[in-house]
């Protein structure tokens, strides 16, 4: 039971990172982006490439960091991957979403994102192959925190959780304490009013995509660390990430954090009541439950 809770928080941290980016994008651009989860794949694969590159160029980075399975090379690769993924997100917006947006059909963007997701997923499959890959083949054994009840965690997962909390806290500070953060929020609330007040809308949109892509890249790398990397990461994560976003409420950073944890924990606890065959249904059931009780999510504001 307690183990399920802890497992849920650990997978939840990854969903939180994905959901934080998605919630900002959905809040500002007002469409359900079905391609957001594909950014996690882009992040994971570009980190894989950069890691190999750094290891080859700077062999001393091939060592692992303390008890983690992550190498120094991967740590640097992760940052490079955040930049690449953020840039890809901006590029997709420029090539596709911006143009569809300008035609004035919000919901066409939903379908455009559907199409984009398909393109990204299959191009990755073509380039990297369909088989799964790992950052590290070593198996890091879990540390036993308690024997009765049995509680075990992996060092990697603690690191993932800590970094997630840190990043989300930092993001929150930026959004709530800096002028830039105010501007971002103003645009999300009311784009025309914000523009009247001299905020550069285009720049704000680029910023949101950069943040969303960067966080997605982190989530993708963390997912690869604790699981496996495959071209279908996006397909597998799209519904849980949406669920975390909706549960938290659009536009709320802390909501997304909490939403990720809730979805992760619920998916783990569900196994104690539902047969395991039904686990793919859990994210949808959470979405439904939250929307029936709080149509705007836990922290979302009402908005038409």
């Amino acid at each position: 039971m307690i183990q399920h809770l802890i497992d849920g928080i650990l997978i939840g941290a990854i969903l939180s990172l994905g959901a934080t980016g998605l919630t900002m994008v959905m809040h500002m651009l007002r469409f359900a982006n079905f391609s957001h989860a594909e950014l996690l794949s882009i992040g994971a694969y570009s980190a894989l490439v950069f890691e190999q590159l750094f290891k080859a160029v700077l062999p001393f980075t091939a060592g692992t960091i303390g008890p983690l399975s992550m190498t120094w090379a991967l740590a640097v690769a992760m940052i490079a991957s955040m930049a690449v993924t953020g840039a890809s997100a901006v590029l997709f917006d420029k090539l596709i979403f911006k143009r569809v947006r300008e035609k004035g059909e919000e919901l066409s963007m939903v379908f455009a994102s559907f199409g984009l997701a398909l393109i990204i997923r299959n191009v990755i499959g073509l380039v990297f192959g369909l088989q799964t890959q790992l950052f590290s083949k070593d198996i890091i054994f879990a540390t036993v925190l308690s024997r009765d009840p049995l509680i075990m965690v992996k060092p990697d997962q603690i690191a993932v959780l800590a970094i997630t909390l840190l990043i989300i806290f930092a993001l929150h500070l930026i959004l709530s304490r800096t002028t830039y953060g105010y501007a971002l929020r103003a645009v999300a609330e009311n784009p025309s009013l914000a523009q009247v007040n001299g905020i550069n809308l285009q720049r704000m949109i680029v910023t949101v995509w950069l943040i969303g892509g960067g966080l997605a890249a982190l989530a993708g790398v963390f997912y690869g660390l604790t699981n496996q990397i495959s071209p279908v990461i996006g397909r597998d994560l799209v519904l849980p990430v949406f669920a975390a976003t909706i549960v938290g409420g659009l536009g709320s950073i802390y909501g997304a954090l909490l939403g990720g944890f809730i979805v992760g924990i619920a998916a783990n606890l569900a196994l104690t009541v539902l047969p395991s065959g039904y686990s793919p249904s859990v994210p949808f059931l959470i979405i439904l439950a939250v929307l029936l009780v709080r149509p705007h999510g836990l922290f979302g504001e009402e908005r038409q």
Binding site: V100, A112, G115, L116, A117, L118, I119, R121, V123, L126
Partner: peptide, 17 residues
């Protein structure tokens, strides 16, 4: 299979654009 999906995705995005 992958190429077919990429093409269909491109057709859809292209149509929307």
């Amino acid at each position: 299979g992958s190429i077919q999906y990429v093409l269909i995705g491109l057709v859809i995005v292209g149509m929307l654009l």
